[in-house]
Simulated scan of single mutants.
Amino acid sequence: MGLLLGDIAPNFDAVTNEGPISFHDWIGDNWVVFFSHPADFTPVCTTELGFTAKLKDEFAKRNTKAIALSVDSAEDHKAWIKDIEETQNVAMNFPIIADVDRKVSTLYSMIHPNAASAVTVRAVYVIDANKKIRATFTYPPSAGRNFNEILRLIDSLQLTDNYKVATPVNWVDGEDVIIVPTLSDADADKLFPAGYKKIKPYLRTTKQPNKG
């Protein structure tokens, strides 16, 4: 069985284009988006890495850092980054792990032999500041990921960590949220003094509590 939600993200030492890291030390007190790429000098990955670099300020707002992984060498990464910066009109600003021996990608179940035996799939791990895995998803090598969805997911996780709410289908930051069903109406009255809409006993919506 692979890594599960709530597990502590395994620590590892690795070489990156920015130098060696110890993963847990590198995380520090940040949230992390850790995502794998099938290989260097591939077209979909080039667009993904470029777009992620453009999200630097959005990640910073969420106390989040990005780190990528590819099974090629750090020297290949450095050469590829020149292509990414040229074609995507961005300066790269996060590390790419060089996983030539596939040690890290195996540790994180990023190699799916029945899908692609020689490369990693497009795995994503969202890891919180306590080093816990909070979300995962996996795309095939051919399909680029939606990084706006990753931001939306982090918004939901960080919101629901701090308030007794859940986020409904297609929710984006600023929209109404759902009061968790384990909270009684009496307690909801205290926690949400601005009020809420009771659609069903188990379905109560309220304004996003951290938006004033």
Rank of each mutant, 00 (worst) to 15 (best):
S156I: 03
A135E: 10
V100E: 14
I97K: 02
L153C: 12
R145V: 04
R145M: 09
P168S: 03
V180M: 13
S105L: 01
R102S: 01
A166L: 13
P181M: 10
N130P: 00
N130Y: 10
D128E: 05
Y163F: 15
S156F: 09
T138E: 12
S117N: 04
F137K: 05
T120G: 04
G174C: 05
D176H: 09
D173T: 02
E175C: 02
N170M: 13
T138G: 00
T167H: 10
P141C: 02
V126H: 08
Y163T: 06
A135F: 15
T120D: 04
V126A: 06
T167N: 04
A135H: 15
N148A: 11
F137L: 08
D128M: 08
P113G: 01
V124H: 13
V172G: 06
L157E: 07
K131L: 08
V180C: 09
L151A: 06
N162G: 12
D128P: 05
I127G: 07
G174F: 07
L159G: 07
K132V: 00
I179T: 08
V180E: 12
A135M: 15
V121K: 04
L153D: 03
A129E: 15
A135I: 03
N130D: 14
V100G: 01
W171H: 08
D176K: 14
N170G: 02
K103D: 08
P140E: 13
I96M: 15
D173R: 14
A118C: 05
Y125S: 02
I96G: 05
D161K: 14
A98D: 02
T106S: 06
D128H: 03
I111K: 01
V121H: 13
P141G: 09
K103N: 11
P141Q: 08
A166P: 00
L153Q: 08
S142E: 13
A135S: 13
D155Y: 11
G144V: 05
V104I: 15
D101I: 00
G144P: 05
E149V: 05
N130F: 09
A98W: 03
R122H: 10
L159W: 13
A116G: 03
N130V: 01
I96T: 14
I154L: 15
I150G: 05
Q158K: 15
M110H: 01
K131T: 04
T136V: 14
D155S: 07
V126P: 01
P181E: 10
L107C: 01
A115M: 07
M110T: 01
V177M: 09
I127C: 09
I97Q: 04
